[in-house]
Design a protein around this nucleic acid. Sequence first.
DNA 1: ATACAGATCGGT
DNA 2: CCGATCTGTATA
Length: 204
Amino acid sequence: MDRPDRNFFKISALKLAKNLLGYYLVHVTEYGKLVGRIVETEAYMGEYDKAAHSYNNRRTKRTKVMFGPPGHAYVYLIYGMYHCFNIVAAETNIPQAVLIRAVEPVEGIEKMAELRYNKKLDKCSKKEILNLTSGPGKLCKAMNITVKNNGQDLCGNKLFILKGDNPPETDIITTTRINIDYAEEAVHFPYRFYIKNSPYVSVR
DNA sequence: ATACAGATCGGT
DNA sequence: CCGATCTGTATA
């Protein structure tokens, strides 16, 4: 399979969020290679987007990587215990990113089960396997992504993207984002994308 | 120095 | 619905 180059990420987060559906997220870890197929994303558009950490071009220690070049990881800790993995989009000084909300486990599923549930895959229920990576915090736990990966170049060889098949347009559901009730008018922006009928999307 | 809320999740 | 758990951010 093929790797997208830097230019793949050098587009608006909105376009990138859609283009990433069906692509693979790969993390080469000390536990082996962990791969998930991206089935759900959200775009965060920065300057005018009240749901974004970089709203109004707010530049802080945390949001710094979003102002950097595209194709890098933006990872932060949320609620004191979960991580969220984003891919920086657009260009330097345009702080946009795509939140990866859910993937379908593809490779290294045994390890993912151990990382997430601390037990063997064959001890996991059907439901647990479906929920292995069905949410931003869940996929980070299962794929061993933490703040240590913040700022990491996704054009490197530890944490990266592989090309996959985008779903047909008719299988892409576009809707509003999750858990951003505070974001006033941005609450209604149709910035969430997921693959229709995928059992691995975060539920609603 | 202090206060406070959050791009979540799992249990009740 | 609620609590866990802690850092980033704003305010002073």
